[in-house]
């Protein structure tokens, strides 16, 4: 596709203005607000932990979302090495960035909850440890992307790390749980809690899709721009 041809076709501009995407973003943010409102007003106070348990309604969905993000990094890394299309690399790096973003929030919210419940921000508790190790792996992933020189190599190395890093997830999980002993999950929760949790998971999934699509579009625009720059320099 020639750059000049694109310049002559103004209908390409609105595609970047992303109308349906904005709608998705709006819905996601409204859902987030609703779920937070439900967490504060609708969900009953948990008997043992009291109010701080309400943090759980954003903490858990964000953890789920970041695990999904890392699965996407893994799958698109394989696809990149297989098909060698830059799109897969764009998806991988976008998903990794958003995954690290959410994992950071998971750790912060978990720590603040711990501060209120245990009295310390940090405990080497299996789930927190697991999430923290994941965070370290994908921060290393983002750092590797900064450190390699040419574009193709960044994509290739990152894909290799995306695969090796994801293979580590079950091992990290097994090791931290063996290390601290398995904590039984409290079984069953009141309907109102389950509903609130359901709404907030849906909200964060919507938000994740919005952020990911948005991020991918931005990066693809950057790829196009780089291509154009290369053409101009010729």
């Amino acid at each position: 596709m020639s750059v000049l041809g694109r310049a002559a076709a103004p209908q390409r501009f609105p595609s970047i203005r992303l109308r349906p995407l904005d709608l998705l973003g709006l819905v996601a943010f409204v859902l987030i607000a609703v779920s937070m409102g439900m967490a504060l007003l609708y969900a009953p106070t948990e008997l043992i932990q009291g109010d701080p348990q309400r943090v759980f309604y954003v903490h858990l969905p964000m953890a789920i979302v970041s695990y999904i993000a890392f699965v996407i990094v893994f799958v698109s890394s394989i696809l990149y090495l297989w098909k060698r299309r830059i799109v897969y690399d764009v998806v991988a790096r976008s998903s990794a960035e958003i995954g690290v973003f959410f994992t950071t929030l998971v750790i912060i919210s978990g720590g603040l909850w711990g501060q209120a419940t245990w009295g310390t921000f940090w405990q080497w508790e299996p789930r927190l440890t697991f999430t923290f190790i994941l965070w370290l792996i994908y921060v290393a992933y983002l750092m590797l992307r900064q450190a390699a020189q040419d574009k193709e190599r960044v994509a290739r190395f990152a894909a290799v790390l995306g695969i090796i890093g994801f293979a580590d997830v079950p091992l990290v999980f097994a090791s931290v749980y063996l290390w601290r002993g398995i904590h039984p999950e409290p079984a069953g929760m009141p309907q109102a809690m389950a509903t609130t949790l359901f709404v907030s998971i849906a909200a964060f999934l919507a938000l994740f899709s919005y952020l990911l699509i948005h991020r991918i579009r931005v990066d693809r625009a950057r790829e196009e721009l780089d291509e154009m720059l290369a053409t101009v320099e010729d």
Binding site: A39, D51, V58, L105, S109, L112, W113, L207, H214
Partner: peptide, 28 residues
């Protein structure tokens, strides 16, 4: 303690989400 921590966490999450979205829009 109590409900304060919930407000703090929700505020941080909202701020970060808006911040990230804004950053991306600006980049775009």
């Amino acid at each position: 303690s109590g409900i304060t921590v919930v407000y703090i966490v929700f505020a941080i999450v909202i701020a970060c989400l808006f911040g990230y979205t804004f950053l991306m829009s600006q980049r775009q």
